[in-house]
Simulated scan of single mutants.
Amino acid sequence: MMSKPKIAVIVSSTRPTRFADIPTKWIVEKAADHGELDVEVVDLRDYPMPFFDEVASNAWVPSVNEVAKAWQAKLAEFDGYIFVVAEYNRSITGVLKNALDQAYVEWARKPAGIVAYGSVGGTRAAEHLRNIAVELQMVPVRAGVHIGGGDFFKVHPGFGGSGNLADIAGSIDGPAKALLDDVTWWAKATKAARG
């Protein structure tokens, strides 16, 4: 019997006042309840990489920067990824784009799920991330969680919200299950194919 797929929940904002910790904790709890995946939080704060300045992608040339190499080694441990994505000016965070660029081999042929947030549910950032994931040979899954509009302000402490995603469960619990189901299916399929 195949072991449970190991999935990284990647925290893609590093600001001191980030909202990301709330949806990260929530999706980790949802994954535990789901029971089909082993998840681990991987925080970009722990990998302070320079802007990508290698000779080429590690698809072609081994990286030199020690933090980038540690990042690549960490990514290699996983069978897939769930990105907790903030939308900054209609796209992903700069730190996430840099982190994506710092690896290639490690991302390939693994699923990518998205929990996004922002004024329109982080949708524009999620769409950018899906395109980048395709180029990195990931399999972006269809289902995603989008925390936006009134729900976003209802739970974002910086805007006077509760900080409790249970307050918007009706909007996000169904999509979370669909996301976890998709990531599970694709993680098992791609893990078997890579084997």
Rank of each mutant, 00 (worst) to 15 (best):
P16F: 03
I27D: 06
R109D: 14
L75D: 07
I22K: 04
I22A: 02
V120H: 12
H34M: 07
T14W: 01
V61P: 00
V120I: 13
I92F: 07
P50E: 13
P23H: 13
A32M: 13
D101N: 09
P48N: 12
V67D: 04
K97I: 11
I22S: 01
F51I: 15
E77N: 02
R109A: 12
V105W: 00
G35Y: 03
P48Y: 13
I82Y: 06
T93S: 15
W71A: 10
V85A: 09
A32L: 14
V84N: 01
V61S: 04
V9R: 07
A32F: 08
A76W: 05
A56C: 00
N58E: 09
A8N: 12
N89A: 03
R45C: 04
L100F: 15
E106K: 10
Y117L: 02
R90H: 15
F83C: 08
I114F: 12
P111H: 10
A56Q: 04
M49T: 14
R15E: 10
L37T: 12
L75S: 06
N65L: 05
G113N: 01
D101S: 03
I27T: 02
T14P: 00
N89L: 02
W71P: 08
I27W: 07
A56E: 08
I27M: 02
E29D: 11
E66K: 14
A125T: 05
D79F: 01
A31E: 01
T17W: 06
R45N: 14
E127T: 11
K25P: 00
Y104A: 03
I114T: 04
K69D: 05
D43S: 09
F52T: 06
V42H: 07
A8R: 12
T93K: 09
A108V: 06
G118W: 15
I22N: 06
Y47H: 13
I114Q: 05
V95M: 06
S63W: 02
